[in-house]
Design a protein around this nucleic acid. Structure first.
Lengths: 262, 262
DNA sequence: CGGGCGTTTGAATCAAATCAATTGGAGTGG
DNA sequence: CCACTCCAATTGATTTGATTCAAACGCCCG
């Protein structure tokens, strides 16, 4: 599943170890939206307070950085939505991840001191550039900042895992449904979303062709799970996020309707 | 450093229309084997020297940790091969990544102070457990250690990206070829490899069914790219790693055989 | 108004999944 | 040692979900 939430590790409180119940192995993740919002706010506030940063406004299509660029800074998304495009030596390219407010950009460049991907703005947005050396120094002096950064990397790894899981285990329709659910979960609003990307791009991200995306969306609309805005097919409403999740379940196991509740 | 070949045009074009003009944006990853080996050795030595650790030997099937476990340590692979299994709330599970000597295990647990995956040994192996709090403390006091750890996380993110790219853009045969190439690249030997996993597991990792894996392997063997050991179908030889890469290229663009050399 | 692009939808095709049968080792126990 | 089971793997036949090919439609913008 693509939902992922964060623990409130902002303060210096040592990790309170609560033993997880062995019954359900995954922690329940609904009802944590305010918590997530809190974490985003905390992140932005802490970084703003403790680090020298330069703000940079980008428009749709502008690159935050490109593959091959030297990695000198990390970037914190203050507003807007960004995509990371991974490109292979042979020309294949793919939208591997999406980034929303509070996310960090640039982790791909740490390993080789050189960025391995393009990161591009999908609409107008602002990022805060933080010098990498300064950031490391600050982390050394402030463990809570280090925890914040490590947490962000870990979380991104989690999204990456979920993405792979989705692509490998879900049929096309469910993949699109899951994608919408993810977007609703991570974007600012969870009922009304507008996708600043073409069907081709969505398909690229989900491992399918644009026609398949289109058909999947049509089917979801026909089933009443989503509905398009009166004008334009990029804005859509999600009637009920839980229903989308149920749709995914049904796609996996057609007789799992009842199991979904609890 | 690396010259940019493409202009910073806004949107990504659809995938397979262009015949791969941009070969030099990614750093060449071959020819770096000694470097990689060096990094592994450095990592192990540095950690051993600077950190208190406890060694733990595991046998095939043993879990280093399981989803839901409290995250108290990270683990450094000293020997053996490990797999990370991501499990969704609905029961789907997937092998999302593989880990070899010098890799860290446990990053998935940082975000929530609780592991999100199972990590399981695929053969006998040894991991070094390092207390997380102590590790963070040590990082604060030694920036090179922090760099090492961040680099490891960044690299893992990179493998994750590559995995998604592979699953989304390659047909089944090429995916298997790419998988073997990856294994040869990361395992100890690059000519002779033995896969401690079933066809079903490989298929799970690559997003295909076991029969498809079997067929793909048979085809690769028929084409002379690999050959099975005299006894058992888990051990195989790779005649020529470059030929595998060429096979992948051919699968993407059937007329790109000549382009592959450089 | 018309051209260009993104989207939708249908029909034909194809790659991979499914269904099914067989082989081959590994391990067990007589 | 052989007969036996059990499970992994291979291979073939068939089905199916997604892609490809193709044609239309709608919207934005000069």
């Amino acid at each position: 599943m693509l939902t992922r939430t964060t623990s409130p590790t902002s303060t210096t409180s040592t990790s309170h170890s609560k033993p997880a119940p062995q019954g359900q192995r995954m922690p329940a993740r609904h009802l944590q939206r305010p918590l997530v919002a809190q974490t985003i706010a905390d992140t932005l506030r802490m970084v703003e307070r403790k680090l020298p940063l330069s703000r940079r406004v980008l428009h749709a299509g502008d690159a935050v950085y490109r593959a091959g660029d030297a990695m000198r800074s990390l970037y914190l998304v203050n507003s807007g939505i960004f995509k990371t495009i991974s490109l292979a030596a042979d020309g294949r390219e793919q939208v591997v991840s999406l980034h929303f407010k509070g996310d960090w950009l640039g982790f791909d460049g740490i390993a080789d001191a050189q960025h391995a991907c393009d990161v591009v703005a999908m609409d107008v947005g602002e990022v805060w550039c933080v010098g990498y050396a300064a950031l490391m120094q600050a982390c050394a002096e402030d463990l809570s900042l280090m925890a914040l950064l490590n947490g962000a990397m870990s979380r991104q790894l989690g999204f990456s895992r979920d993405s792979l899981l989705s692509v490998c285990t879900l049929p096309a329709d469910a993949r699109v449904a899951e994608f919408l659910r993810y977007w609703a979960d991570r974007g600012l609003r969870n009922d009304q979303i507008s996708l600043p990307m073409t069907r081709a791009e969505i398909g690229n991200h989900l491992g399918m062709k644009l026609e398949t995306v289109s058909r999947a969306l049509s089917r979801l609309a026909r089933e009443g799970l989503i509905s398009f805005a009166t004008l334009g097919r990029r804005d859509l409403q999600i009637q009920d996020v839980a229903a989308l999740a149920a749709f995914v379940q049904r796609a996996i196991n057609p007789l799992a309707a009842a199991v979904a509740l609890h």
